[in-house]
């Protein structure tokens, strides 16, 4: 079929628009990277756009030596790895029984869990519970309240339900116990979904911000988001420029170091992004089928 003139015009415009949209996602990150690799003089002059001017890695050196960013990076890894492992265990624990049709109170439990998605206690009551449990300043305060994401649990439950019943019946007749059924049949068959959910949790923990801000008073426990946020926020003092004292000036994190902080957070995400994209999109599709 030959494209008409109108169609040709449509396709041309479409390619241009999409190209611009894609660039708008990429270029801000390129700009930040260029800022972090330029020297302070060029950055102050405002001519750094997409290419570093006066190439230097000073910002990274002073970031690593002058701040807690290495420690924060380590904290991020601990938070993410342990948190993801705990969450995956608990999500399976919740999803498997709820996927069995002969479980007592299955509908009631499912509804009670979905209700927590629609209505929550909110920040202060959560804080009181965490405080009551003595979890302030411990990572338990980040991990425990997030053990089961209801959405992820529902995705996994739906997947378990869709598994072939015949295979299970056959395994049961052959005298397979429930535990072996889970360990040797159900879980190995769910690897693609489990992988997607692992990444969902890992990204959430890697980017965790609010709970660290609320529950961690000790700066040694800060993760990257909170640490970098504090560097960036020092800029909001700029609006009081008129009554800025010299000592305040010294507290302002230089633009290049701030940019370097953002890049340090950005790079690990870019490295794992190819995996993320593949499995995340699949995960979203599984979730969408349910909807």
């Amino acid at each position: 079929m030959k494209a008409t003139r109108g169609e040709k015009l449509f396709y041309a415009v479409n390619y241009v628009v999409l190209g611009l949209i894609a660039l708008s996602c990429l270029l801000p990150m390129v700009h930040i990277a260029a800022m972090s690799l330029s020297d302070a003089h060029h950055v102050a002059s405002g001519h750094v756009v997409f290419w570093p001017l006066g190439w230097t890695t000073d910002a990274y050196t002073s970031l690593i030596e002058g701040s807690d960013i290495v420690n924060a990076f380590r904290n991020n890894v601990v938070l993410t790895v342990v948190g993801t492992a705990l969450c995956m265990c608990c999500t399976v624990l919740a999803a498997y029984p709820l996927s069995r049709r002969d479980m007592y109170g299955r509908r009631l439990f499912t509804l009670a869990i979905i209700f927590t998605m629609l209505f929550t206690g909110g920040i202060i009551p959560n804080y009181l519970v965490i405080k009551g449990l003595g979890l302030i300043d411990s990572y338990g305060a980040i991990w425990l309240p997030a053990l089961v994401s209801v959405f992820n649990m529902l995705v996994l439950k739906t997947y378990f339900e869709s598994m072939q019943v015949e295979m299970e019946e056959a395994a049961r007749i052959d005298g397979c116990s429930e535990w072996r059924l889970i360990a040797q049949i159900v879980l190995p068959l769910s690897v693609p979904v489990l992988a997607a959910l692992t990444l969902f949790y890992a990204v959430a923990f890697w980017n965790q911000f609010m709970n660290v801000l609320i529950f961690m008073n000790d700066p040694a426990k800060y993760n990257l988001t909170v640490l970098v946020q504090q560097m960036v926020q020092s800029q909001s003092m700029m609006q009081d420029l008129n009554n800025l004292q010299p000592e305040d000036m010294a507290n302002l994190t230089p633009e290049t170091i701030k940019s370097a902080g953002v890049v340090v957070m950005l790079v690990p995400m870019l490295i794992v992004y190819p995996f993320l994209q593949k499995y995340f999109v699949k995960g979203v599709m599984i979730g969408a089928v349910k909807g």
Binding site: C25, Q235, G261, V262
Partner: peptide
Amino acid sequence: VQTLVYLPHFLSWVIVSGIVIT
């Protein structure tokens, strides 16, 4: 295009706001 437009979803708000503020 898909690869680029999905990417910002994975960035924390600290990164996105840091970029916007800069």
